[in-house]
Amino acid sequence: MYGRGLKPLSIASVAALIGAFALVFFYAPLDADQGFIQKIFYLHVPLALVALGGFVTGGVYGIKHLRSGSREHDMKSYVAIHLSIILGVATLATGMIWAKASWGAWWVWDEPTLVAFLIVFLLYACYQPLRFAIEDPDRQMRYAAVFAVIGGAFVPLCFMSVRFAQAALVHPRVLDQTGGGMPGSMFFTFLVALAGMTLLFVTLWKFELSSKHARAQLAALRRRVASA
């Protein structure tokens, strides 16, 4: 039963996101360098972090599936990766808008985090084609889990190597200033936004799992009624 606890969870994520966006526009101070455009940071960075976290979560459930062979873990892994791909689209879109506003170009290659994210996104974009190119359901689950494990390990490696490739870092490095220059009020706002985005991810994850579970049960019921 994936639907259990969905109601309080949805209320909490809506509340956290509304609270976060209210903090973004009415509480967090204007950035000294970038001014108002820096407000994208509170959307873009939580989206990216939650998407990457979702990819790694997919890998963790992939390992669990390989160890247990249970269909449930495969579904959890699949939905986590599927949702992360959607959040990844949002991350790339908001990142491009931010790049256009700050640097005047829709895409900048000397920007390691954006480039690494694109590579990871391209890899995961192959997840569904791979999955649905395999007919046998057991093999489909197993191969998808293997892909999820490989991808989960690839995420940190890719970020490392791309970051090394650029000596000059030009990203609006707001996060790097944590502890250093970033004011506490900005950091607090960011944390609330991150919490809201995480809650949203978990809510949608359970929502979709519940829907998939319902469809699977319905199909089983139909088979039973038809054969009886």
Partner: peptide
């Protein structure tokens, strides 16, 4: 790994480059 993943799929020659290129990018960069 990629070869073994792809060989059992319907569109093997499509899946291999799609999977291998992003996965091998760090090697090309380095």
């Amino acid at each position: 790994l990629v070869g073994a993943l792809a060989v059992q799929t319907r569109a093997r020659d499509l899946i291999v480059p799609l999977l291998a290129l992003p996965l091998l990018l760090p090697i090309v960069i380095a």
